[in-house]
């Protein structure tokens, strides 16, 4: 048996090597070396490792998602969906902003018509105020602050008029939906502030309220962009 045949035999990994191979290995140092290396690599290649604990994949994926995302997923999803489909009116306001150099342009404004939902507890049904924020680049961990005037409340937040949370903004359009409950019927504005890495931007979102009869006033509203 030559070295080539011997190595071929070794690679077949037969449990009981034949006599010719053993005889060859006895006299050939290089093939003995090769056999040892093969054995080593085989042991390393089959080195066991523990399986991850139960639900590992779901757990690490869940933990990897940003807090705002998890919150919306775990707690608010059902409510938000219900709310989205049952809104009295939808106001879509496009606000163009870019940090740290803010740019503004005439915001596109579209008032979609919708059906008013019966009021509960003496208040009107929540109004879906959708704000689209355009950013030139992604902003990780941006701080969003919402300040409501006296006549408005956020559904589910009682009388709390100041809310702050962190969210990652994608480059391009990002959409914020606020479920607003109306306490009086004056035309009013919501202040939204976005902070990121020392820069900040504030803008007012005008809210045109539905009439007392639940009709929507299809009026055009004008948004104001205020660089501070």
């Amino acid at each position: 048996m030559n070295c080539c045949q011997a190595r071929h035999e070794l690679e077949l990994m037969q449990r009981e090597n034949n006599r010719a191979l053993l005889k060859h290995l006895h006299r050939c140092g290089e093939c003995r070396e090769y056999a040892e290396e093969l054995r080593l690599v085989n042991l390393l290649r089959t080195m066991p490792a523990p399986e991850p604990s139960a639900q590992f994949e779901a757990r690490v994926l869940e933990a990897a998602l940003p807090t705002s995302c998890k919150k919306s997923r775990n707690q608010d999803r059902t409510r938000v969906r219900t709310w989205q489909f049952a809104t009295a009116a939808s106001l879509l306001l496009a606000v163009f902003a870019a940090l740290p150099h803010w740019q503004s342009s005439a915001p596109a404004m579209d008032i979609a018509s919708g059906e008013a939902v019966a009021a509960d507890s003496g208040m009107q049904a929540p109004l879906a105020v959708n704000v689209s924020v355009d950013t030139a680049r992604a902003m990780e961990g941006a701080m969003i602050s919402v300040s409501l005037p006296e006549g408005l409340a956020l559904d589910g937040y009682g009388d709390q008029r100041e809310l702050r949370w962190r969210a990652n903004l994608d480059a391009g359009a990002n959409r914020l939906t606020l479920p607003v409950r109306v306490r009086n019927e004056r035309r009013t504005e919501i202040l939204i502030r976005i902070e990121h890495q020392g820069a900040h931007k504030e803008f007012y979102v005008p809210v045109d309220l539905p009439s007392a009869a639940g009709r929507l006033e299809n009026r055009r509203a004008v948004s104001e962009l205020q660089a501070i």
Binding site: R77, R79, V80, L176, L178
Partner: peptide, 24 residues
């Protein structure tokens, strides 16, 4: 109550689809 940036759900799903096969 507030759904912020609905596009995130799609992004989240894409991220999960990308990394899940490699987690183990």
């Amino acid at each position: 109550m507030i759904e912020f940036f609905r596009g995130r759900a799609a992004r989240e799903d894409r991220f999960t689809a990308l990394v899940r096969p490699h987690l183990r």
